[in-house]
Amino acid sequence: MHFAIGDFVLDLIQNSVEAGSSLIEVDIDEAMNGVYVCIADNGCGMSPDEIDRAFDPLKNSAVKHPGRKAGFGLPFIKQAVEQAYGSFKISSEKGKGTKVYFSFPKSSIDSPPLGDVSELFMNALNMVGASELILRRKRSSDGLSYEVKKSELVEAVGDLTSASSLSLVKQYLASQEE
């Protein structure tokens, strides 16, 4: 099981990348009463039957690794949300994309910590595949709000797999959290 909310988010972004999305939008809203997350992509999407299977950790469709049927990403997040009495919703349309929404209430002791958001964003931006990734972050306690677009960062520092670009992006993201 993942430790922080950011780990679940990265796992779901990885799913979106592997679904062949050209646009992934991630919203993380740290409100006073809890953390609200939405991940929307325009990837291959899932049929209702495929969604059902995605929630069974041992009966996945095995597209990623033929011959292997285990897949724990979505089952993990659903279990964690249920444990903390949060909310979870997934909507998906074959050929159009998938939207996953979940939240963890602050009042529940079982809600995981949010984790390091700039570290999460740096990892997400490093993933190959999605041509555009838009990351939005809000924090109510101090009014923090910013948006990061992968295309803008690529234009500013170059390829995001190069270690030199990554360390610049790391500094940039850390400054956004100030």
Partner: peptide, 24 residues
């Protein structure tokens, strides 16, 4: 995620940033 972060930091520290590509 933490490993990735630490590797990027160590590469920068040892001045190898322009020689290395870090992927996932």
């Amino acid at each position: 995620k933490q490993t990735f972060d630490a590797i990027v930091a160590a590469i920068e520290k040892h001045k190898l940033a322009n020689k290395v590509v870090v992927r996932q």
